[in-house]
Write a protein that binds this DNA or RNA. Structure first.
Lengths: 200, 200
DNA sequence: CAGGTTATGGCACGGTGTGCAGTAAGTCCA
DNA sequence: TGGACTTACTGCACACCGTGCCATAACCTG
């Protein structure tokens, strides 16, 4: 089991204070990615800019691309909580169309950060590669919700299809967004969801 | 520009005959993947089993995972041709539901090979990573078809959504299939497509 | 046999990611 | 003050991936 720095919300049990943080490394890294490109930026470049050793970087992130997913755990958690909190009176499809965009909501000051992230995620092959496990989690959460609503297992055909539809809509909305950054992402996301989620 | 062996359909202009082939390397590699796992199989293991040098392997495939996509170019080509040959009398949605499964059709003797491939593609993270560019091509072909039918550009919202729907249905069908290998993939594929492609 | 063409082999190199051992910097307690 | 404990950072060696470069092997035609 690899060692990992204790998360910031853990109780302080003494020990050497952290000289850096996942968030700090992620910001330094993303800035370099935007400036020089993902592949042209080596981990050594990132650690040099952040004033940390190469080995330390890999304690915070298991791969170079993972810095682009600092927010992933929070987004997935919000999605799961919003689904769990939905009333059973609200139609399955409506719940998904409402909660998925809400789970990805970020304050306006992070708008350009999100746009940069979306551009990297959808256009740089080396980054797209690392996205698969995150996409899978996003899809699974939707599938589990639909399966629970339908009283089936997660290997139900309709539940699987719905999970893929939610992911497809999310990716489609972001793809459209980076081509039309003036539009409202949340609104786009909902339109794609309404188009793609089957009416079940 | 990296050097590449001439494809088998090229005219013979003399020169040293190839000691191996992409197909042979792919078969050796996939067998090792199935037996020992993808990550536990190094390129050295593959080349040792195939009786070629490490350098030669990278002339046929640019990455280790690419051996799982030997058929990709042919499948994409079939999809594009089938779409191009469709009558304009046939509804857009019907064309997609018919051609996508047909483009992925393989003879029965390759059934287990396809199943192994699907299992590796959908369950091994290191393999899923390399899938992104292939998925993107598959999606683009569908998007281009829908955009042409609608008389719009490929940045049309509905065309983008349709492209994502086709990909989602393809992945969903394979996911369902590896959990229920007794079912007919072609039939499953069509059902997922009918569920997910919006009626436009 | 010479000259052209194509495939394979060997080697060095930069980059990623991991395991391990050591050290630095805090807290707590006697 | 001085340990003992805890946690975080560093350095190094290593396996693997993927690439560029050059040499060499094996076939063709004249």
């Amino acid at each position: 089991m690899p060692w990992m720095p204790t998360p910031t919300n853990a109780p302080d049990r003494g020990g050497r204070p952290a000289i850096t943080s996942a968030r700090h490394l992620a910001e330094v890294a993303q800035a370099l990615f935007v400036e020089h490109g993902f592949e042209a930026t080596s981990v050594d470049d990132i650690t040099a800019a952040a004033g940390v050793s190469r080995r330390t970087f890999f304690r915070y992130f298991s791969t170079k691309a993972d810095v682009l997913w600092v927010e992933s755990a929070a987004e997935l958690g919000r999605f799961r909580e919003l689904l769990a909190g939905a009333s059973r009176d609200e139609a399955c499809r409506d719940v998904l169309c409402r909660t998925a965009p809400a789970a990805l909501h970020h304050p306006p000051e992070e708008h350009t950060w999100m746009l940069h992230r979306a551009q990297l995620l959808l256009t740089v092959p080396a980054v797209q590669e690392k996205a698969a496990p995150r996409y899978a989690r996003w899809r699974e959460i939707a599938t589990e919700f639909v399966a629970a609503r339908r009283g089936t297992g997660t290997d139900d055909l309709v539940a699987i299809a719905a999970g893929h539809a939610v992911l497809a809509a999310t990716l489609g909305a972001h793809q459209y967004w980076i081509a039309h950054p003036g539009e409202d992402l949340k609104n786009l996301h909902e339109r794609f969801l309404r188009l793609l989620i089957p009416d079940v």
